[in-house]
Simulated assay, not measured.
Amino acid sequence: MADIHIEEFYKDAAIALVQLYNAFPRRVNLFVEDIAGPDEPDEFGLHSKRHMACFGTLLWLAEEGLLRYVDTIRQEALDQAVLTQRAFVRLSSPASPDLHEENNADSSQDLPPAIREDFSTHIHMLRNALRSGSSAKISRVMQATFFRDRSDH
Results as ranks from 00 to 15, higher is better:
Gly37Glu: 05
Ala87Tyr: 04
Ala36Arg: 08
His47Lys: 13
Ala77Cys: 05
Leu59Ile: 15
His47Val: 05
Ala87Leu: 00
Tyr69Glu: 07
Asp71Leu: 04
Thr72Trp: 08
Val82Asp: 01
Gly45Trp: 02
Leu59Lys: 15
Ser48Gln: 10
Ala62Leu: 08
Val82Ser: 12
Tyr69Met: 14
Ser48Asp: 14
Leu78Glu: 00
Glu76Ala: 09
Gly37Cys: 06
Glu64Met: 14
Gln80Glu: 13
His47Ser: 12
Pro38Leu: 12
Lys49Trp: 00
Pro41Gln: 06
Arg86Phe: 08
Gln80Lys: 12
Thr72Ala: 15
Leu66Pro: 02
Arg50Tyr: 11
Leu78Val: 12
Thr72His: 04
Ala81His: 00
Leu67Asp: 06
Leu58Thr: 08
Glu63Leu: 00
Glu43Pro: 11
Cys54Asp: 14
Leu59Ala: 00
Ala77Lys: 04
Gly56His: 00
Gly37Met: 07
Leu61Met: 12
Gln85Leu: 06
Leu58Gln: 11
Pro38Thr: 11
Lys49Gly: 13
Leu66Trp: 15
Arg50Asn: 11
His51Pro: 10
Ala81Val: 00
Ala81Phe: 02
Leu46Phe: 01
Thr72Met: 14
Ala53Gly: 01
Phe55Ser: 05
Arg86Met: 10
Gln80Val: 01
Leu78Pro: 02
Ala77Ile: 07
Phe44Asn: 10
Leu61Asp: 01
Ala87Gly: 03
Ala77Glu: 13
Gly56Glu: 05
Leu61Asn: 09
Gly65Arg: 03
Ile73Gln: 09
Leu91Lys: 08
Arg90Tyr: 04
Asp42Thr: 08
Arg90His: 04
Glu76Cys: 04
Gly37Ala: 10
Leu66Glu: 02
Gln75Thr: 15
Phe88Ser: 07
Asp42Pro: 11
Leu46Met: 11
Pro38Cys: 09
Ala62Glu: 14
Pro41His: 00
Arg50Leu: 02
Trp60Lys: 13
Pro38Tyr: 04
Ala87Phe: 03
Leu91Glu: 01
Thr84Tyr: 07
Cys54Thr: 06
Asp71Lys: 14
Leu66Asn: 04
Ala53Cys: 08
Glu40Asn: 14
Tyr69Lys: 00
Thr84Lys: 02
Gly37Gln: 04
Gln80Pro: 11
Gly37Asn: 09
Gln75Phe: 00
Gly45Asp: 01
Gly56Ser: 15
Ser48Pro: 00
Arg86Ser: 06
Ala81Cys: 10
Phe88Ile: 03
Arg90Asn: 02
Pro41Ile: 07
Trp60Asn: 05
Val82Arg: 12
Arg50Cys: 08
Leu58Val: 10
Ile73His: 09
Ile73Ser: 09
Met52Trp: 05
Arg74Phe: 13
Gln75Lys: 15
Leu91Trp: 01
Arg86Ile: 04
Phe88Glu: 13
Phe55Arg: 01
Lys49Pro: 13
Ser48Leu: 01
Glu63Met: 10
Phe44Met: 13
Ala81Trp: 07
Arg50Trp: 12
Glu64Phe: 05
Arg50Phe: 04
Gln80Ile: 08
Met52Gly: 10
Gln80Asp: 11
Glu40Arg: 11
Asp42Gly: 12
Ile73Glu: 02
Ala77Arg: 07
Met52Asp: 15
Leu58Ser: 03
Pro41Lys: 06
His51Asp: 13
Lys49Ser: 15
Val70Trp: 13
Leu67Pro: 02
Gly65Asp: 11
Asp42Gln: 06
Thr84Cys: 06
Leu61Trp: 04
Ala53Met: 06
Asp42His: 10
Thr72Asp: 10
Ala36His: 03
Gln85Ala: 09
Glu40Ile: 10
